[in-house]
Design a protein around this nucleic acid. Sequence first.
DNA 1: CCTTGGATATCGGTT
DNA 2: AACCGATGTCCAAGG
Lengths: 255, 255
Amino acid sequence: MTSLEEAAEIIRRAARSGEVVVAAAECEVYYSGRSFSRLGRGERLIILKPDGSVIVHRPRGYSPVNYQPQGSALTVTLEDGKLHVRSARPRPLEVMDIYVYRVLHVFTAKLHDDAEFSLWGTEEDIKRAISAEPSILGEPLRLVEEERRMGDKGFADLLLVDRRGTYVVVEIKKHAAGRDAVEQLKRYVDYYRGSLGRPVRGILVAPSLARGAQRLLEAYGLEYRRLDLRRAWEVLRSREGLMRFLGPGPGGSNR
Amino acid sequence: MTSLEEAAEIIRRAARSGEVVVAAAECEVYYSGRSFSRLGRGERLIILKPDGSVIVHRPRGYSPVNYQPQGSALTVTLEDGKLHVRSARPRPLEVMDIYVYRVLHVFTAKLHDDAEFSLWGTEEDIKRAISAEPSILGEPLRLVEEERRMGDKGFADLLLVDRRGTYVVVEIKKHAAGRDAVEQLKRYVDYYRGSLGRPVRGILVAPSLARGAQRLLEAYGLEYRRLDLRRAWEVLRSREGLMRFLGPGPGGSNR
DNA sequence: CCTTGGATATCGGTT
DNA sequence: AACCGATGTCCAAGG
């Protein structure tokens, strides 16, 4: 148990010295900005990071109940027997007020962390696999361009040419493709068809098609090619040596 | 500083008794599931909640670098001079492995939190405002139904009738509406027009229109009505007494 | 279970 | 600053 006065001093000192603060505390939280929220009195975890991020976690669930992003400004005051922690960001103007009634535990630490974080298995990786070996789509195709601009309609993931010289616009989805994905592809194909004045094929590449998406796709005369991460990897592994990511590490053998 | 053996015991005991665990620790993190990630050695915050959620925070930024949602299963073992914390969820199969080299600080706490959380200023609130006073859209309109089913195309936020008896489908966006919003409205209007066999108007309600969205809207013959949260509130406040949310609270006077 | 769409979405890239 | 698209998005609601 820590007094509110001590807690206030600990937080101020941590903020000055670039330390992370973690507190378990009984508190109320108010948020005002793009929306408004109120969280009644209860015990939570409060995390204050040196870059201004503030995160409040309830004892359950993955997502924080209240938060402010990095760049927010912190003020800590004692008022009325409560510890008032305010975090404000200018644009958009948003304020989060935490009123702390009791501090169960608090600690601060300067955390040193310059390590690299790498994530793979993204849509970008699937795109690279198709680019490296377009025949993975089941027919001979030649790559024209990645991220080809479709006027003001956005960017097509891939532009290819089939064996008959017809342009093929490809939209890739890492997960099951829904209606939105079909609409997106349709926009690109319509634009490019109009731009070329010639027929243009559209292929939606995804591991699966949502029911509604399938009907829409047929109605629009677009095509679907099933492709999931696993198969994309097989190409990437042989072409790029994906194993460089897995590197040597304690968990390497598990994956 | 806490030994890895002690930390392992603390975590196991906390898991049994439904306590939250917070640790500052030097660790590596591996994730395998929908994607794959690797985080090199460095100092982070690790949060373990009794419902199975696991959250790993670096010293900067709002979002966790690695995580598992509630319902994940925890195993804690000592291997090779490292503390291995594994969190696994069955569907989709995803595994996060944390290898802890050094524990800077660890604490556990049973957090009691049954308070209510209320959030307002959402799209739902805008919908309620229009329902309560459809004329906010600039013409006399009568509400037919909220969340009106549009066949297999989804649900229209609002279905109204104008003074000439023409049905009006309304799609509401809390933020600037982009192309997706226009496509969404188009799907509904097309469906309902086909279903009725009569003209149907479509109105997109949003605080602003993205450039691309405006052109698309015109091309589709749909309409736009500017409406933001602030104006929706004025209606809600008078009609429903929004102030009940603000209630009596330490920060009440600030908002 | 799948599908759909909102979220204080967040985040990053480009214009 | 606006706009656009991906996300291990997460999450709830509905069928």
